[in-house]
Design a protein around this nucleic acid. Structure first.
Lengths: 137, 137
DNA sequence: CAATCTCCTACTAATTAAGTATGTTATTGA
DNA sequence: TCAATAACATACTTAATTAGTAGGAGATTG
């Protein structure tokens, strides 16, 4: 169980946006250079970030990306949700078990996973981009 | 970020041991049947669980596995540590960045990852096998 | 001594993550 | 108005990790 580099990249990138000016879009070319991240990979991440409405874009020359919300309104949970493929923290391998053992929502393990999922979601929702920028960067 | 089936399997298996008698070892053959888990895969998991001193084994006929500690003394963190390959919750992709950006322990992101790792470790250490057995099974 | 187990190593298969390649569309500034 | 710039989109390749298999050696009990 670990945080993917995908989330790491996204976080770095958003921190960079947070540090940039409010109204000056930062281009991915620039961003990729500053963070030494693969440009084409970033493009993909940003498509997801945009879909999740964490960033806005401006096309064309002098275009780029901007944060769509205030730093304080973007949490690590948001970022992970946007970028990570599986939305769940844990999954019950329910389909491998027959009905005697694991019966949908009645399954004990499933409710354990659910609890853990909720707890972790709560935890990561509590870490905002502004906190990261202030404390760690 | 999610909990692997490996951890799920191990948890299920240990719960099964917890439910079994104190001094009657449970064989993997039996366990695999009860939980519908692949026997050979379980063997590997149990080798790790034994190495981590979470279980004891008795060889030979009528042999099997027993919990090495009281249920309350085994946490999800223990299980994950034992079974999961990477011991870290998060890793800094430090080696991809040059020294200008990320300088070992001085790197802001790294300390963020460290904080998260510590927090999660603490969280999972707080979930014991006995709690799981009591509340969820 | 035979059945039943753990123990050990080395594969293979499947899935996911990471990264590349190629091209299209929109916007700005010269 | 056109050329440069940068987002948008899709499809593909490679690398890494996870899940699962296979076969046999070494103990122990009835």
């Amino acid at each position: 169980m670990y945080i993917s580099t995908k989330t790491g990249y996204a976080l770095r990138a958003l921190v960079e946006l947070a540090l940039a000016g409010e109204n000056e879009p930062l281009s991915l070319t620039e961003l990729a250079q500053r963070q030494q991240l693969p440009f084409k990979y970033l493009e993909q991440l940003f498509r997801k970030l945009k879909k999740a409405e964490l960033v806005l874009s401006r096309k064309g020359s002098r275009g780029g990306y901007l944060l769509a919300r205030k730093k304080a309104e973007i949490s690590m949970q948001d970022i992970m949700n946007a970028v990570e493929d599986s939305q769940q923290y844990s999954y019950c391998s329910i389909d491998k078990f027959d009905d005697d053992y694991c019966q949908g929502s009645g399954c004990g393990f499933r409710s354990l996973w659910d609890r853990i999922g909720t707890d972790l979601e709560h935890y990561f929702s509590g870490i905002s981009l502004s906190e990261i920028v202030n404390k760690y960067v």
